[in-house]
Design a protein around this nucleic acid. Structure first.
Lengths: 374, 374
DNA sequence: AAAACGCGCGAAAACGTTTTCACTGGACTT
DNA sequence: AAGTCCAGTGAAAACGTTTTCGCGCGTTTT
């Protein structure tokens, strides 16, 4: 017997409307309904209208799982990020989701907190849900990920790291430009002792940023002692710890560049905690330009990487590869970066300033300081 | 003819393993395979082992959509939040996801940026994906949401707002306790002019916080003039604007309580921008205790609401209602709040302090100020 | 005027599962 | 010793779609 006990809806028979129900109401076959819904032009205008009316009056919503099952398209995209707690990622997700939804996709977020075991789980879940592609925004991936995903052939987009397998695209961020801008900015202000707080070594992009820094400083004739490059974790805690390490140095830097904004905010905290004023005593520069960077104290000078651009590129790359026009593949997507000068950078003339550093007062960006007290 | 052109896998015939393939390899019927996979005890140990081996060697992963289609269970839970950009929500999501995944669920995030049109879209998408329940963590919902979701009978969990329809649960947060603690803390420090920056009026929980504040201040004999209650938007911008409004008052408050941490951070920013020191000139208290609150300058005194507890409660409520044991329904889940004292609150003796405010120096929480200059 | 064509539509197969039902054989109960 | 029961299994229905195939019919081509 059919189980009838679950009739706790409003009215007993009021089940969710079927494609069959719509077909019946419109006096056509279910095939025609399907075609109408999917915008297949092979259905007569009049019929189509009748179907649409029937569907509307019944409140018909096609069943996604059935759709996915038969068509093989889940209309799901995976997004792998490393740490949802880092505001950059929510911003990225927001942009990406917006685009995805506009194109009829749903997104599935996988937050691997740098934990390889979690990563595997995330991948398995994505595979199980049959994602049609995944954007690996984790800024550098363990090889295992790649293998696991590549074995099924789901299209992949990475940041920075560029595997040469087919069906994979890489977004390449132009770290150089922004970082060189930042170094120049610091140099013009008169900084000579510039430190860098890097990200975890496993993150490809963290390494790239680090290299860009080293390259950039050397280019302007600065030699950076190894103790000026300290490793953070791309987190607030990491930034704080790294900064404290830096301050314990016999000759601490007058400026600190960070591999991301969270690190920079941690640095700000550590500086304040140690009685140092930013920017008078130390200048600080972040990376990412998360929204909150505008609101730190002082507002953070940082290198912007448009997460909108990132999202757009990721999506279109994914889509291109998913469509199967693998031919049109290896366009490289370039993500630009750019220095945003706010108030965490200035001429070094405070506690940490040194006599051998020539002051050049003219370079300070003129910014109004509302109601500054004395 | 069957289309053969899509054989771009490694080896031509190497499709993703079927349940049929497993059955064939194990020499049983697909029914047995299904039973084995799903842990149905009605299958003999030996047979089960054979099946499991076959499955493993074939790398079999059951197809989620097919599963969902026939069983009617999507193993998806919706989470509605209002603003993914507010760090509280990522933290909440992280906790919730962890629990959900541990129990075999996937989560689908819907970020309604307070936009009713978006909300509808989110709901539709969740409904279409057949979520088995949704946790509405948006802290107050437009009625339309409720209707739309309630019409299908998917289990719902809300925060604060408690609809009495069946299948719905409400988590109730004890705002009173934390807020009274905060007010007391301020009062003991000697504050008499305490302002409140509320959240948007559409958010139920924002209103509750506001009321708790009003109640709390009255309780200790303070009367709050209406201009001391100003409306924010639960964003950084809103906090800044509201604070500026407050500072334009002929007699500005010496302490500002905020409806959430983002607002408080905005306030910190506005204060600094106007040359006011926190906490000497103004004390600031937030709400939520997001992770970053520990890293603001100064570290933010705030009212903690455990998002872990929130997540756990939400999940178990959802699960209880989903299971159908509607009988065991109306347990009220209580979420506690608690004041976390950091360094954004102190005795009011700065620019805004008033002569009619008695100083009581002993109440300042003794916290070490590392390496404080001068 | 006959043949060819194409348009609009319906019947039915397929997608990969879960679950019901019926069937077997052996172990109990009487 | 016969009947009853139960554990283990398989066949097949169902889930709600998309899509292929074929069919009628009106229109164009030869």
């Amino acid at each position: 017997m059919p189980r009838q006990k679950k009739s706790k809806s409003k009215r007993p028979g009021e089940k969710r409307a079927d494609i069959r129900a719509v077909a019946a109401k419109a006096g056509v076959s279910i095939a025609t309904v399907s075609r109408t819904i999917n915008g297949n032009n092979k259905v007569e205008t009049l019929t189509a209208r009748r179907v649409r009316e029937a569907a509307k009056s019944l409140g018909y919503q096609p069943n996604t799982q059935a759709r996915a099952l038969v068509s093989g398209r889940s209309h799901m995209l995976g997004v792998m990020i490393s740490d949802i707690t880092n505001p950059f990622f929510p911003e990225l997700i927001q942009s990406f989701e917006e685009i995805a939804v506009a194109n009829g996709y749903e997104i599935m977020i996988g937050s691997t907190s740098h934990d390889p075991r979690l990563i595997e789980g995330v991948i398995d879940r994505m595979l199980q849900r049959n994602v049609e592609g995944v954007a690996v925004m984790t800024f550098g991936v363990e090889a295992s990920v790649l293998d696991r995903l590549a074995s099924r052939d789901v299209p992949l987009v990475f940041i920075d790291v560029a595997p040469n397998a087919p069906g994979m695209a890489a977004l390449s961020v132009d770290y150089r430009f922004g970082i060189e801008q930042a170094i120049q900015h610091l140099a013009v202000l008169g900084h000579r002792r510039i430190a860098f707080i890097a990200g975890p070594r496993t993150l490809q992009s963290a390494v790239l940023r680090e290299n860009a820094f080293i390259e950039g400083t050397r280019q302007i004739g600065l030699k950076t002692p190894p103790e000026y490059i300290v490793r953070g974790t791309h987190t607030l805690e990491g930034g704080t710890k790294a900064m404290e390490e830096l301050l314990r140095l016999p000759m601490p830097p007058t400026a600190v560049m960070c591999s991301n904004d969270m690190t920079a905010i941690g640095v700000l905290h550590a500086a304040a905690d140690n009685g140092l004023r930013v920017p008078e005593d130390v200048s600080v520069i972040g990376f990412d330009d998360v929204h909150i960077a505008r609101y730190t104290i002082p507002p953070l000078t940082t290198i912007q990487m448009s997460c909108k651009t990132l999202a757009v590129s990721a999506f279109s790359a994914l889509r291109a590869h998913a469509k199967g026009n693998v031919q049109s593949a290896p366009e490289r997507y370039e993500i630009p970066t750019q220095l945003i000068v706010r108030r965490s950078t200035a001429i070094p003339n405070g506690a940490l300033a040194d006599l051998n550093t020539p002051l050049q007062r003219q370079a300070l960006p003129s910014r109004r300081v509302k109601g500054s007290k004395s």
